[in-house]
């Protein structure tokens, strides 16, 4: 049996929404290079909807796949819904992750939370 599910490998090989949003209004970065995982999420939110989302990830196969899947799960969704994204939902959508890789899905959830928090603080400053 392969290390990862077909879904994980698909998102790893062909990551969705990879890159940068130049005029993002919410940016979050979590993890650190020392541990071998960094995820950066860029959000473009308009009228309470996540109009666009992109990511950059330094990390293993499941970290890249988790980032990719997380962006798919929130793209086009209301902010309220994006806020409710859980790591379990990311892992489930990938048809599961090995136990010792579950932290990658946690990181994806945290990256989105962090980007949403950045968005909110920018709104408050307005």
């Amino acid at each position: 049996m392969a290390l990862y599910s077909e879904k994980v490998m698909d998102h790893f090989r062909n990551p969705r929404n990879v890159g940068v949003i130049e005029d993002a209004n919410g940016i979050g970065e979590v993890g650190n290079a020392k541990c071998g995982d960094i995820m950066k999420m860029y959000l473009k939110i308009e009228d309470g909807i996540v109009q666009d989302v992109k990511f950059e990830t330094f990390g293993c196969g499941s970290a890249i796949a988790s980032s990719s899947m997380a962006t798919e799960l929130i793209k086009g969704k209301p902010v309220e819904e994006a806020r409710k994204l859980t790591n379990e939902a990311v892992a489930e959508a990938l048809d599961g992750l090995p136990d010792y890789k579950m932290h990658c899905s946690v990181l994806a959830q945290e990256a989105i939370e962090s980007a949403l928090k950045d968005y909110e603080s920018r709104q408050e400053q307005k």
């Binding site: 490998m9 790893f12 090989r13 541990c35 071998g36 995982d37 330094f58 990390g59 293993c60 196969g61 499941s62 970290a63 890249i64 890789k101």
Partner: peptide, 26 residues
């Protein structure tokens, strides 16, 4: 610098190369 070993191994595997890494993820 700037990349992680497991991703590197998986993509090399896709290209038909079986190698190894000292990355934590492996």
């Amino acid at each position: 610098e700037g990349i992680e070993g497991e991703s590197l191994l998986l993509l090399l595997d896709d290209k038909g190369i079986a190698a190894s890494s000292g990355s934590a993820c492996t």
